[in-house]
């Protein structure tokens, strides 16, 4: 029996070439999207020759800049589970498997947006932002006397990971309406740079062997895991939202789902000893980060600055 390396819960990544292939596919798709946008931009050049009188504040060839901010909820998607414990013959398997708490913790993001509308309602957008993501999982272990079930000790660990990134999403956005209220959908990819990573551990336990039925709060620990987390992340993003014209600006609300395509755990450091490994028996799984983010935004068109009649130049 082999309980140390737990079979993958989702897609197995036992072959290292699979994530690498995913990465290349991702970038290929991303670059294709850019070129597609570039082609559309060329079309936009010819469209610009339309008579100025038919143009509006949301017309073609418009640049938009803005600020945005909001909150997010994340989940870690384990691809390959690991444990410091290897269970001996006759032991109960699976007790050390982590239990992930999906979308249970809120994080924040804020940043800027830069968009280029190359066709009426169709735009390409860069949404650089500073974001913090949080997710957690629980792990529990117990020991019990073979002949006296009351002689039992259990320890529960709650691990909360906080990751901070500079995100660089690039999306293609399509607006459904030309009125004041403009619902839209968008999709694209993102690339992220890690700026900080911390793991907090809360330990609780019950020690019936020492005569207590109460849960005892044991310790709290916070450990930096920058070196144990890959410096970059990438994935695909999809979302929907709306904007509302308010004077020369637009205010809006949008929801995006960021689907990570990369294992974020730094494999070179997986079992390198620290307080987490030998102290709290926590060996990180290979995992991808997914996040649902909700943002408010204010954007303004750049061309209004030079055009008195709202006609794009």
């Amino acid at each position: 029996m082999n309980f140390g390396r737990i079979p993958p819960q989702f897609n197995s990544l036992s072959n290292q070439s699979i994530p690498r292939m995913r990465k290349y596919l991702f970038f290929t798709a991303w670059i294709l999207a850019l070129f597609w946008g570039f082609g559309a931009f060329a079309q936009g050049k010819s469209a610009k020759r339309k008579p100025p009188s038919k143009a509006s504040s949301t017309d073609i060839n418009q640049w938009w800049v803005g600020i945005r901010g909001g909150m997010n909820f994340s989940s870690a998607s384990p691809q390959q589970a690991y444990s410091i414990f290897s269970y001996l013959q006759g032991s109960t398997a699976g007790d050390n498997e982590k239990s992930y708490n999906d979308f249970a913790h809120s994080g924040l993001q804020f940043g800027f947006s830069l968009g280029y509308e190359f066709l009426s309602g169709m735009s390409i957008n860069m949404l650089p932002s500073y974001a913090s993501y949080r997710f957690s999982y629980d792990n529990a272990f117990h020991w019990q006397d073979s002949e006296n079930a009351d002689k039992r000790v259990s320890t529960n660990y709650n691990f909360e990971t906080r990751l901070q990134y500079i995100d660089l999403p690039l999306t293609i956005k399509y607006e459904f309406s030309t009125g004041k209220l403009k619902p839209y959908i968008q999709a694209g990819g993102y690339y992220s740079f890690l700026t900080d990573a911390i793991k907090k551990v809360e330990t609780t336990g019950k020690d019936q062997a020492s005569g207590s039925d109460e849960e005892i709060h044991v310790t709290e620990l916070s450990v930096g895991i920058d070196d144990r987390t890959k410096k970059n992340n990438y994935g695909i993003i999809g979302g929907l939202g709306f904007t509302y014209n308010l004077g020369n600006a637009r205010v809006g609300l949008e929801a995006n789902y960021l689907y990570g395509l990369q294992n974020l755990d730094n494999g070179e450091m997986k079992f390198m000893d620290n307080q987490l490994i030998s102290g709290t028996y926590d060996v990180p799984d290979d995992y991808n980060l997914n996040s649902l983010s909700i943002s408010m935004q204010v954007i303004i068109p750049l061309k209004f600055i030079t055009s008195k009649d709202y006609v794009p130049l």
Binding site: G4, I84, F85, Y87, L88, D145, R152
Partner: peptide
């Protein structure tokens, strides 16, 4: 590289 603890649940 690895770190392993060979455990059973017997007190």
């Amino acid at each position: 590289s690895f770190m392993k603890i060979y455990n059973d649940e017997k007190f």
